[in-house]
């Protein structure tokens, strides 16, 4: 799968980090601008709720800012940031499980769904139903993997699991989706 290049280079990232650590806080805005969509997308995949995802994404950036001194520069800043985002979103999800889901805020799986609503066929509706049958980690693995912006290694890093585990999760999720889709289609035929 072809993966697009990151928006800023590693050297630019490190230069910006040096400026932030030297007290030029405003340089952090450039890092936020560069990665906000990536961070927001990850948070939205985990939380499936736009306002909560926005809050979690902001928290992730704020946390990253406060822990910037601890960033060891062995990995890319983006990889480190995605891991913080994933953990922040997972914690938020656990906290939010205590609250009732608001119907108005709940998005149905995917942000692009609304614009694609007219052209989406029944089969895609059934695949979306099948997605709900996957366990949480498998579902997140497959969703993040299929976002062209992240490599398998990046998904593994952000989820804190070995690359092979994510590969197995994605493969297993695809098989499970096919299996669930077959079941749904069969039950639809019976109901007709």
């Amino acid at each position: 799968m072809l993966r697009p290049r990151a928006v800023i280079t590693k050297e630019e990232e490190f230069a910006l980090i040096d400026r932030v650590l030297a007290g030029q806080t405003e340089a952090y805005a450039r890092l936020v601008d560069s990665y906000k969509s990536y961070v927001f997308t990850i948070a939205l995949k985990v939380l499936e709720n736009r306002p909560e995802a926005e809050e979690a994404a902001q928290d992730a950036f704020i946390r990253a800012f406060h822990y910037l001194k601890k960033f060891n520069r062995e990995a890319r800043f983006s990889t480190w940031l995605y891991r913080i985002t994933f953990n922040t979103a997972i914690s938020a999800k656990r906290k939010n499980k205590m609250r009732l889901d608001s119907i108005e805020n709940k998005i149905i799986l995917h942000e692009g769904a609304a614009e694609d609503a007219l052209e989406r066929n029944d089969k895609h509706e059934f695949i979306a139903q099948a997605m709900e049958k996957l366990n949480e980690m498998d579902k997140l693995s497959i969703q993040l993997y299929y976002l062209q912006e992240f490599s398998l290694e990046e998904v593994a890093e952000m989820m804190g699991q070995p690359t092979n585990t994510i590969k197995v999760r994605v493969h297993r999720a695809r098989i499970r989706l096919a299996e669930e889709l077959t079941k749904i289609l069969k039950s639809e035929v019976v109901n007709l």
């Binding site: 805005a29 969509s37 927001f40 995917h110 692009g112 769904a113 979306a128």
Partner: peptide
């Protein structure tokens, strides 16, 4: 098709 990047609100930064 479904897994596209999404963008936060304009005043996010």
């Amino acid at each position: 098709r479904q897994n596209k990047m999404v963008h936060p609100s304009k005043n996010f930064t």
